[in-house]
Design a protein around this nucleic acid. Structure first.
Lengths: 186, 186
DNA sequence: GTCGGATGTAAGCGACTGCTTACATGGGGG
DNA sequence: CCCCCATGTAAGCAGTCGCTTACATCCGAC
């Protein structure tokens, strides 16, 4: 009755379950038993295939950030990231920032992955302006995106959490354009 | 040799220690034994004076948010909050948002305190504009402040984390003024 | 002085955590 | 066919968690 033995499928099921739970609850409040139960496998397999909970978390972040960044050219990144943050029913497990935001996870390689993610976002955003403090301006825009995600999901702050995506995107892009505009008119 | 018995002082020492550790590590990664050790008292006293770790956390948040808001009139709130976020050596324990950001703490009364804190910030910010979507605009400004705090402390994102306070404040207030300006010129 | 409640302490309980180990089982290659 | 290793499972270990309990000790009221 049970599905045939398939290591790759089991590993994928564990990764999917971990992605969902880390995004919803953060690292600390997600247990390896929860992940294994959601994946429908024995929790010992988690350690066979990923080695440790830390490694699994790092793998989740790496996988998500790769998926998000691989098809977002710089000029569309702000829009893409913002829109995904603003989806009506935000699927928390789909956005790597959610797992990061819910996990104050200092040690282990997760810290490196987390920073790298921020670096990639910011580098892409910085290319949108030619100001000499482009990096700082990009960081501020990134900070805004992150903050909006926090208020919408962690805080559930109204009216922002329930606001229309287009309205929010319009306000943000309008204000952010002050930071990202080119210093000399084209 | 030990200080005289003083329940009020003991309680205050526990609250101070909890404020510091919750702000640095978040709720989950702070243990009651850590708090008691830092306060220099037996950990059983934490439960005598605060009942539970949850209650202590809620008390920390309530105390901090009261202190922050009580002497910040609306027109100075953005500046005050932003400047405190941008202090050179950010004393994480001093800003209630740090404890909140590091604690994905869903249940218990902490959720209520967290929302109330957001409500107070946003209400004050909303009074700065007369636009009909003032609340939404205020939420976006609040989101920005939160996001800057996250990038500076949780991520440690450079160059934002090491940027000059005045530079950051100038950029943010300039861009935020687009959102908070009055709809008809004075 | 002494008595009693307020204050502080040591020890441990039961639950849960990440992780390991010893063992069952199934399916493809000889 | 059968054997063997990849795959899956059950049980449990050692440590930590929040919290409780039983017991010392101090100090002010009388």
């Amino acid at each position: 009755m049970s599905r045939p033995r398939d290591a790759a499928a089991t590993k994928a099921a564990l990764l999917d379950a971990a992605t969902k739970l880390f995004g919803e609850r953060g690292f600390d409040r997600t247990t390896v038993r929860d992940i294994a139960n959601l994946a429908g496998v024995n929790q010992a397999l988690l350690f066979r295939y990923f080695g440790s909970k830390d490694t699994l978390f790092a793998t989740v972040l790496a996988t998500q950030s790769r998926e998000l960044l691989e098809d977002s050219p710089a000029e569309h990144l702000l829009r893409n990231v913002l829109l995904r943050m603003l989806e009506e029913k935000p699927r928390r497990e789909d956005h790597p920032l959610y797992a990061v935001l819910r996990s104050s996870h200092h040690d282990s390689s997760a810290e490196l992955v987390r920073r790298q993610l921020g670096e990639e976002y910011a580098r892409a955003l910085a290319s949108l302006t030619d100001s000499d403090d482009a990096q700082l301006r990009a960081d501020l825009v990134l900070a805004w995106i992150v903050g909006i995600g926090v208020l919408r999901t962690v805080f559930g702050k109204q009216p922002l959490a329930g606001a229309d995506s287009a309205d929010v995107a319009a306000l943000v892009t309008k204000a952010a354009s002050v930071l990202l505009e080119h210093t000399e008119a084209g």
